[in-house]
Design a protein around this nucleic acid. Structure first.
Length: 421
RNA sequence: GUGGGUAUAGCUCAGUAGGUUAGAGCACCAGAUUGUGGAUCUGGGGGUCGUCGGUUCGAGCCCGAUUAUCCACCCCA
């Protein structure tokens, strides 16, 4: 197939026949966000590269090897957004959203771009539902954000998805933990893989994530962040788990959750499933209390998450969760003969003005084929108009699902609309 | 970036030991006494067998390369 009709690697077309699934998902998301008091925000698809270097961290995989970066005609370095939080924080600062008072609670639905090797549940362009909660240091904000996700997953009917949380500490307790960690790994350095040797110097916490068998075994016995928290971080975690217990959200503490974006502090969490292959993280997020300050704002607490919509739909699909396909056509007006062409057009127009999805044939097809077509597009009702109907000024409305016909009713849009309702 | 699988009609796939004009189901189109849908039946259109090269008298089938795709590692949603 020639390149002109081939989509780029790692991208996906949303087909018209699947659009209703996305609409459903987005409707559920918007309804949930509304219940939890989040307003939608939108922002550009690309940003200055500098933003992601600063916000995401220039040693992360996302920045080092996965960004779509190019120089524009004005000689600026531009990057297609690899994740949402950096853009939202930038927009928050640039537009002084804090000026309206804190907290600021926003959500977004947006595509992200990462130069990855595609596999199940992983694309180069994927879509995320994300939430950012600015201005609160309280653990109740953490609880709220997790509750929102829990609620969304619940109303989508998703089962067998596990909430895992961890605390990776704050600038106060992290140095102590990192030195304990480094000390532990250095004692077993000869058994670590090559990548982890580098990680030991750069960021030993990454070793906890390593899937190498030997490293994993070593990491299993490593000191855990939650055992080295400062009293404040400990209290934060205790409060969060208290909230979750109180509202009946089950979770597990997973000291292996470190997350690959540098800005996280204290709470990190993931919703993970094993039903869609190896890429089972459907949602991931956490707290980032230093990020806003690092990008030039006042010290402001914050947290958020990203939730992969493609993965969400995959989970629903594999769990057999049906999304109802809304009717595409309320009434099909079938015409019989050239003489009724104008009346058919007029009737369809008037039915639409009354808010109905009305359809007619424009290919000059026979009545039988028009009926088949009406059936194929799922028309709920059908009206056949021929010379006879025009002459006597009435027609019958056929209920396509019940296979019944009405008594003859006046051949005008209001009467037909009334019959349908 | 590393590894493995796959590539035949719009879709899902057959294709037997290399051997005539490459098949099926679904979908699409047209019919089955011309004013009526989902079933059935009949017929039809549609494929340079991913691409390039090689082996062979002969390649959809064997070999090499390349591209695409799927899956896994890494990392992430």
């Amino acid at each position: 197939m020639s390149l002109t009709v081939k989509r780029p690697r790692g991208t996906a077309d949303m087909l018209p026949s699947d659009a209703y699934k996305w609409h459903y998902l987005e409707d559920q998301i918007r309804a949930t966000a509304r219940e939890f008091g989040f307003l939608e925000t939108r922002f550009p698809t690309f940003e200055h590269t500098e933003l992601f270097l600063r916000a995401v961290g220039d040693t992360t995989d996302v920045v080092q090897k996965e960004m779509y970066t190019f120089t524009d005609k004005g000689d600026r370095s531009i990057t297609l957004r690899p994740e949402g939080t950096a853009s939202v924080v930038r927009s928050y600062l640039e537009n002084s959203m804090y000026a309206g008072g804190l907290p600021v609670k926003v959500y977004y639905l947006a595509p992200n771009f990462r130069y990855e090797k595609p596999q199940a549940g992983r694309l180069r362009e994927h879509h995320q539902f994300g939430v950012e909660y600015f201005g609160s240091y309280g653990a109740s904000a953490d609880a709220e954000v997790i509750m929102l996700l829990h609620r969304l997953l619940g109303r989508l009917g998703i089962r067998d998805i596990e909430l895992r949380i961890n605390s990776i500490g704050c600038p106060a307790c992290r140095p102590g933990y990192q030195s304990a960690l480094r000390q532990y790994f250095e004692s077993k350095e000869d058994r670590l893989c090559g990548t982890c040797h580098d990680r030991l110097k750069l960021n030993p916490m990454r070793i906890l994530d390593c899937k190498n068998a030997s490293c994993g075994e070593i990491a299993g016995g490593a000191p855990r962040t939650i055992d080295h928290l400062c009293p404040e971080c400990e209290e934060h975690m205790r409060k969060l788990t208290g909230y979750l217990d109180a509202v009946g959200i089950s979770f597990s503490i997973d000291s292996g959750i470190v997350r690959g974006l540098d800005y996280y502090t204290r709470t990190v969490f993931e919703f993970v499933t094993t039903t869609i292959g190896a890429q089972g993280t459907v949602c991931g997020g956490g707290r980032y209390d230093s990020l806003i300050e690092e990008l030039g704002g006042q010290p402001t607490g914050g947290l958020g998450f990203g939730c992969g919509l493609e993965r969400l739909l995959m989970v629903m699909e594999t769990q057999g969760i049906e999304i109802e396909r809304p009717p595409q056509c309320d009434v099909f007006v079938a015409g019989l003969g050239d003489d009724v062409d104008i009346p058919v057009q007029k009737l369809v127009h008037e039915l639409r003005l009354l808010g109905l999805a009305a359809e007619r044939d424009t290919l000059g097809r026979s009545l039988k084929v028009q009926m088949k077509y009406a059936d194929k597009i799922g028309a709920r009702y059908c009206v056949v108009i021929g010379d006879a109907e025009i002459q006597i000024g009435s027609a019958v409305v056929k209920n396509m699902t019940a296979r019944t016909e009405s008594e003859p009713i006046p051949l005008d849009a209001p009467s037909i609309a009334a019959e349908i309702k």
